[in-house]
């Protein structure tokens, strides 16, 4: 068994997000014409109807939106307990990403979070989230 569950690379709508993460960059999709953020990412902006969408850089700061501490293990690569976090980007409100934290954590809504890039065995990285005051 591999050591990690990895995102499929090269998808025509979502691939650039994971390719950016491999370069230790956090990006999000937005409309160049009207500024609407689009997540999950796709080519067309439903708000203004345009196809001029592109990837933008994020500074990687966010607020915690919701979370769950998983106590019952469902996958051999994710031993319990661990915590699933959902954050919303400070510089792109409306863009929410999911992250994994090892162990059980005491969290609260709105707490400051920041991205960290967790190296993967294929030389890439996954964007994960942690409390901003840690480390």
């Amino acid at each position: 068994m591999a050591d990690r569950v990895l995102p499929r690379k090269g998808d025509r709508d979502t691939g650039a997000f994971f390719e950016a993460a491999d370069r230790r960059e956090l990006v999000y999709k937005a409309c160049d014409d009207c500024g609407t953020v689009i997540n999950p990412p796709r080519a067309r902006c439903a708000k203004c109807g345009g196809w001029n969408t592109s990837w933008k850089q994020s500074a990687g700061k966010a607020r915690l939106n919701t979370w769950s501490v998983v106590h019952q293990q469902v996958h051999p690569l994710f031993p319990a307990p661990y915590t699933i976090v959902v954050v919303e980007l400070d510089d792109a409100p409306g863009i929410r990403y999911v992250g994994y934290m090892d162990g059980a954590h005491d969290l609260h809504e709105g707490m400051a979070m920041r991205v960290r890039f967790e190296p993967t065995e294929d030389g890439g990285a996954l964007p994960q989230w942690m409390p901003d005051n840690a480390e």
């Binding site: 990895l6 995102p7 690569l77």
Partner: peptide, 30 residues
């Protein structure tokens, strides 16, 4: 569980499963 490269092609699983969000129970917990 044996071939853990996931997602793509409008499943969007690549944004969730690699981060440990894997079940309906966890989704409804959030």
């Amino acid at each position: 569980k044996s071939a853990p490269v996931v997602g793509g092609r409008a499943t969007y699983d690549e944004y969730f499963l690699p981060f440990g969000l894997m079940t309906a129970g966890q989704t409804f917990a959030l």
